[in-house]
Structure formats: C-alpha cells, structure tokens
Nucleic acid binder design. Structure first.
Lengths: 337, 337
DNA sequence: TGAGCCTCGGCAATCGATTTCCGAGTTGCG
DNA sequence: CGCAACTCGGAAATCGATTGCCGAGGCTCA
C-alpha cells in the first residue's frame, strides 16, 4: 500500500487551454468540439479529442455554468431522508432523470425551515435550472417557495404552501381517501368496528386534505392528530385504548403512522386485523415489511417523477398548474379482504 | 390568484456591480463586505449592506466557485435512496454538516456503475471540496473512486473498492459479527436451532467481511448467498425450507434481508422466534416496524457522519486511513432474550 | 472572371466574484 | 519635521468556458 494517491497535491486540473495547446488549435475550437455547438472539420476534431483524452480533460462545469447561465441541474429539497416516503420520491425523481442529460442534486432540509431557506439560496446560487421541493411547512416555507419561484422554474411536490401560485405535482388525496372510504363501506361493519382517524396536526397540505376528506365521508367520527411519524402512531394507540375502544377501523394519514399503530397494538396484545383494522396512506416499500402487510393507498412516485421531468423539459414557461395524480388502492392483511 | 409569478421572465439577477453602483463604491469593496475577506470602514460597510438588502442581492456561487476554486460543498454518492440504510446514512451526513458552512449535495447512482461514473464527473466538474461515496460495486467502481481521489479529497463510506488507497469510514464488521456470535452462544442451543447464514453474493466489501467472519466463527455451517434486498430474503427461506430445516437460527447480512426472511417465514406458517430465530445487521429504523421486532447490530450512522465531517474539516491532507466504528447490539424479539 | 455565399477557425468579450497590486491618506515615532 | 509603517478603497487581472464577430478560403453561378 502506498500512500501516494491521497497525498499528492492535485496537479492543477487540465483546462481547455491545455488541450488547445496540445492540439495546436484555439480554445474556441476546443469548446466547439467538446460542447458540439458548431461543426468542426474532421481532422481538427480528431486532434482535439485525441489531445483531450491524452490529457484526461474533463469540462469544468463551473466555468460553463457561469458563461451559459444554465447548468443542466435540478435541485431537489426534501424535509427528511429518513422518512421512507420522501427518500422514495427522491430516488424516483433521480431515476426519471437518469436518461436525460440533467443531474438531480438532493438536499435534505432536516425538517427545519431555516435550513430549507439556506438550501434554496444554495441551489439558486448554483444556478440550477429548476428547484423541486417538498416544503417543510405549509406556512413557514412559503417565503422560500416564493423566493425560488421568482428566480427560476419551481415545482412543489407532495405538499403546497399556502397562497403561492407555483407549480404543484402530487397525489390526488381526495381520490385516495375515497378509495379508502369505499373499501371500508364494502368490507367493514362500522357498528362493530367504528372508524377512527389518526393524522397529523399541522404543517402539511396533504395532511389537511386527507383529514378534511375523512371528515366529510365520516362526519362525527373521532380523530387523533399528532405528527407524521412512527412514535405518534404508537402514542395514538395508547390514547384510543384509554378512550375505551376495543375494536376499531383505524385510518392513518400516512403509512409510517400506521406502522406505529400496528406495532403498539401488537405490543399491547391486540389483534390485527381481527379486532383492529388499520389502513395507511403512501404505499412506501416498507409497508410490505409489516406483519400483517399493510392495506394502503399507494402514491404513484414513478409517475410523479416523470411528470416533473415533463414539466421541466417543456421549455417555455407555462402558467402555474397543480397536477394531481390518482393513487392506487393496495389491499393488505391489516384489513379484511 | 394571478399567474404572474411563474410567468415573469426572471429579471436578470442582481450582481455585485449593481450593489456597488447603488452604494457608490467599487465592486471590490462590495466583495470584501459580503465575503468578509478584509475589514471595510463602517460607513461604507453599512452602505453596501443597505444597498444589498434593498436590491435583494444574493451572491452568485458559480462566480465565486470559479474564482476561488472551492465551493464549500461536499458531494455524496449513494447507490439507492430506496434502501433505508443508504438513505439513513445520507440523512445523518446532512445532519452532521448542518451546523457547518458546507452544503451536502446528494446524488443517487441508481446502483449503476455508469451513472456513478457520471455522478463523480458531475461533482468534480462542480468543484466540490470533497467526494463522499458508497461505491456501487467492489470492483467495477474502483475506477470512479480512483478518479475522484486523484482530483480531490475522497472518502469511501460503508464499502471499499478493492485495491484503492483512499480514505474509508465504516462499521467494524468483525466487531459486529462477534456481537452476534456471542449472542448466539449465550442464548441459542445450536443443536436444536442450527445456525445458517443468508448473505449477499457479490459486490460489496461489507458483505464479504461479514460472511468471512461468520465462516470463521461457524465453520462448516451452510450459507445462502444472493442479493442485498427484501426479495432475496424471501427466496432464501424457500431454499432453506426445501433443504429440510424446520428450526434454525438465521444470521442475515442485512436488516432488509432479515425482514424478507421473517415475512416469508410468517407467510409459510412458521413461528419467529419459536422455531426460527432471525438476526439482522444495520439497525435501520424499519427494523422496529417488524413483528417481532428485529434483533440486529446497529451501525452508528450519526458517528459515521461526524467522522466524515472531522476528516473533511481537518484541512491538510493526511495519509489515507480506514476508520472503523464499532457498532451496538440491539436485542429484539426475533431472537430469544 | 468576379460578385455573392457558405464554411469554419481564431480573436476577444463576457459571465460574476475574488484578489493582487497600487496609491492616497493617516498614524507613529525618533 | 521627516520617514517608515499601516490602513483601506479602487483598478484591473483572473478563474474556465462560451459565443458574437471577423475574415480567409473555397464554392457556385452568371
């Protein structure tokens, strides 16, 4: 083992000027060959490519970005990569762009509005061609969304901030909740297993929409509102057991909450789906890991990715629009067939 | 709702020249105020800051990067964000850098060596100050790792490519496997529940190391090698049941495999931990979602993040080193107490 | 043959910020 | 008082690539 590689001072990177010198042409010609912006005579082209490969030339994207004002990059801001739904969105957006010449760079805002603000400035400062973001917070992220939209093409994903006229791509929560309602109507005797809702308190438009729809379909049914996480699902179980429920059909606003609910029900000796039925929302991969497998509504993450790609590829600026994609119902064993 | 915001042509961004003009000073002065690279008289400084905030000036990081050759950015390459262990590493690295002035940008290579190569060039072209990567493949990623290391500070995470003298930060797999061995020796009658290994075939140093250690601790015990995913765990169960096992202690090379194993064991009517004990490795959050909860070895992702931060902050180039962090044993209910 | 057009290489300006160098003004000290 | 040292603002070069413009050479066509 030598320790050479890591120690060596990086020998000043090769530039177009070096390639030009070696090939005996001007930098302009090198640039035209590399970026294929104008045809160059075969002989010179080959000389340039030869010199470039001899020297191991790689284009400096910073120089290019400065001159062109564009970067072939889209910046994605997500609140938390430890949340399987968000990381899945990130993965599928990356996949959607894999074939294009555009890179997706991801930044985690760690659920913090200030970090989110910094992230937006960072992406704008880097001259990304588009900002795609899942806003941390319905209200407090509004300024960041506006700031991005005013500087470049901006798309909100999954959640919308209030009062901003900025593109949105997400799931049709009403359609999703209707699928759940129909499933319950068809398979559950709500006299025996009354319907309950466990959702999230604040901050996200998706949470609001799902709760609102539930409330319309099942007026007067109780709801428990907390956070979008596993721990809250567990806690909610304690609360509803305290309220005296021994059987119920629990509609959760997100899979991660539903998984917490199932875990705690088991821990406290209750049976799923015999006594309690649990239905999630999101369709994250981990829903398969649950036992019993989770009945849920799967958000079409692939299609969301493709939709964003289309929106960004579509060159000329369009009036802002909200694109809602209809989700699928995924029956599992946490509710009856 | 107006459709103005999204349609408006971005009104050419504000530059230092604009700020300088408004404040009645030179761009040099503006630069010195903004980047605090040299003291500036109070009156001018205030004039500059006033003008900057009036105009909504934000520094153009591309221009800065071109001139400085540094970017206060580290690029992280991960194989697949849909894998909870990788996304967790990404999240914790982001968290570790949250307080520093450096941004972490993440790129998913989608498990493809070619995309990984592109990602490395992309980061290098953007002049990141450091590349941190979980290589896709032990052998085929070697060229990309070398390329990065030769251009800038590079750190491999979790997996090492063969034959490269490049920093590495990861889990001490030997120590982790020893914890598992001790747990088995103390709690399992291996006559009744013979030990089996379900691991991954190819491609990752971690996989190799874990398998090798298992093989040393339990010579002659059978092993099933496939992929690092849920589906392989399920498939492995079919194989080992076919081989006639009705009771066993199954050591899995990763939690995600272990979860597949548990799911399929349940599906085929076997009991965990009564008949089969299952032990994972990684300690991803979803291990808690399993029922029974998974016994596993938790990789210290927070500490890995902090270690990378330290390595990158430590300015002057050091000889490459392999830093291995000792993991914790996390008892769950998939094996006896 | 000559005017007009086309092709294509090179010069030099340019993108936005940083930084070196210079010089004017001030202070310190013997 | 005079010289050195110091402070601090501005002019201009610089980072690396792209691109508008110019002009040389080759072609067509009348």
């Amino acid at each position: 083992m030598t320790k050479a590689v890591q120690n060596a001072t990086p020998p000043r990177a090769v530039t177009m000027a070096d390639v030009a010198a070696r090939a005996g042409v001007s930098v302009a010609t090198v640039s035209r060959v590399i970026s294929q912006s104008r045809p160059v005579a075969k002989s010179l082209r080959e000389a340039v490519l030869g010199a470039a490969s001899d020297l191991g030339y790689q284009v400096n994207l910073v120089g290019r970005a400065l001159r062109k004002g564009r970067t072939a990059t889209v910046g994605l801001l997500v609140p938390d990569l430890d949340n399987p739904f968000f990381s899945s969105v990130a993965q599928h957006l990356s996949t959607a762009f894999e074939g294009s010449a555009t890179d997706v760079l991801i930044f985690s805002t760690c659920g913090d509005v200030d970090v989110e603000r910094r992230g937006v400035e960072s992406f704008l400062g880097r001259q990304v061609d588009a900002v795609v973001m899942i806003p941390c917070h319905e209200v407090e992220s509004a300024a960041s969304v506006q700031r991005a939209a005013q500087a470049t093409l901006t798309i909100q994903l999954d959640r919308q901030v209030v009062d901003a006229d900025v593109h949105f791509v997400g799931c049709d929560n009403d359609a999703g909740m209707s699928l759940i309602t129909r499933h319950i109507e068809e398979h559950v005797d709500t006299e025996v297993q009354p319907v309950l809702y466990v959702g999230a308190q604040a901050g996200s438009s998706s949470g609001h929409e799902r709760f609102k729809h539930f409330h319309e379909d099942f007026p007067d049914r109780p709801s428990y509102l907390g956070e979008f996480d596993f721990g809250w699902g567990q806690e909610a179980v304690d609360l509803l057991l305290e309220d005296g429920y021994t059987k119920a059909t629990i509609v959760a606003a997100a899979d991660i909450i539903a998984l917490g609910i199932i875990a705690r029900l088991h821990a406290r000796g209750h049976r799923v789906p015999d006594d309690f039925r649990v239905i999630g929302f999101d369709g994250v991969g981990v829903a398969r890991f649950a036992h019993p497998t989770l009945t849920t509504v799967r958000q079409p993450v692939e299609e969301i990715g493709r939709t964003v790609l289309d929106l960004i590829s579509a060159e000329h600026t369009q009036p802002s629009q909200a694109l809602r994609i209809v989700p699928d119902f995924v029956p599992g064993h946490s509710s009856p067939d």
